[in-house]
């Protein structure tokens, strides 16, 4: 089975980037996030869904860089600036959270594949119906969908976002998504009911799928594993093609540690082989995953 993998546009760069902004916010759920903006020493090609490996420059511990999806990117007078949103969890993100504008970050990117924007999986649908992209994000998974939303709009594809989180403060990037997509095309859900519907984001997603059966839809999703499993089940039940952006612990990000294994269906006795989230993904078709 062929993976989503689109050929990389260019080789990744291993460089020192300078912090432009590193704002920390705390959600009512007590989760903490960092909004990080970096200036790269040279412009690079970045595809939606790709990621970078980041680490505070010059520190010894922790050793390994942390994988983070590109959130937004911008070319300002020939200078490439890129943004990330990270949840402060362990030693790596804690050390990033201590950095201030002007501080340096070890940057390796852009890495990984990108989303399939061809909508080829929905060609059985009547051509008169315009396709619609459904973006489904949970918590800090949403950044991996922002460049995608921009690209979909650029291509004139109607785009809708379902954004879930524990609390209002966990709806990462909501303001930016709202400015991009307009409030009418965003449905939020929070566990504590502080914003949007109360409960999981998969509830409004299912309601939408029920009322739009037979229309050419494509789901793009990134978030916690449990949410991705639920999205995959819904996609299968309502026969909607879905691309899932996965997260996995990875030491290198470029294919050599083989730590970020994900089971993918294959024609063999066991029915699956392990592929790498970093170079075979992070984007996989829902139906190719052996979950």
């Amino acid at each position: 089975m062929s993976a989503t993998a689109t050929p990389k546009q260019s080789q990744p760069i291993d460089a020192v980037a300078v912090i432009v902004r590193n704002e920390l916010v705390t959600s009512a759920s007590t989760r903490r996030y960092g909004y990080l903006r970096l200036r790269l020493p040279q412009p690079i090609a970045i595809q939606p869904g790709q990621f970078a490996m980041l680490k505070a420059h010059g520190i010894y511990e922790p050793l390994l860089r942390r994988a983070m999806a590109f959130y937004r990117c911008e070319l300002i007078n020939g200078q490439q600036e890129v943004e990330f949103i990270y949840q402060i969890l362990g030693r790596g993100t804690q050390s990033l959270a201590k950095l201030e504008p002007g501080d340096k970050v070890e940057f390796l990117g852009a890495l990984g594949n990108t989303y399939d924007l061809a909508f080829t999986r929905t060609t059985t649908m009547p051509e008169v119906l315009l396709p619609e992209a459904l973006l489904v994000a949970g918590g800090v998974g949403s950044p991996a969908l922002y460049l995608l939303a921009e690209e979909l709009l650029r291509r004139g594809i109607a785009t809708r976002l379902f954004l879930g989180g524990a609390s209002q403060g966990d709806l990462c990037g909501l303001e930016d998504f709202t400015a991009l997509l307009t409030p009418e095309r965003i449905t939020c859900a929070t566990i504590d009911g502080s914003h949007g519907e109360t409960g999981f984001v998969t509830a409004p997603l299912e309601a939408y799928l029920q009322t739009h059966a037979g229309q050419p839809l494509m789901i793009y999703s990134c978030g916690p594993d449990a949410m991705l499993h639920a999205v995959a089940k819904l996609a299968a039940r309502y026969q909607v093609a879905a691309q899932l952006s996965l997260e996995a612990p990875m030491a290198c990000g470029f294919g050599i540690c083989v730590g970020c294994a994900v089971p993918v269906k294959a024609d063999c006795a066991e029915g699956f082989v392990y592929k790498k989230v970093c170079t075979d993904g992070p984007v996989f078709w829902q139906e190719e995953l052996h979950w």
Binding site: E61, P62, L63, L64, R91, G92, A248, P249, M250, A251, C257, V258, G259, C260, A261, V262, P263, E270, V273, Y274
Partner: peptide
């Protein structure tokens, strides 16, 4: 060789543990 089920790696102090399973 297919290798081990995930999780396969974990960072520790000054190093990391791996159980890739010789994939």
């Amino acid at each position: 060789m297919r290798g081990n089920a995930p999780w396969r790696i974990v960072e520790t102090h000054g190093g990391m543990l791996n159980a890739i399973g010789l994939q």
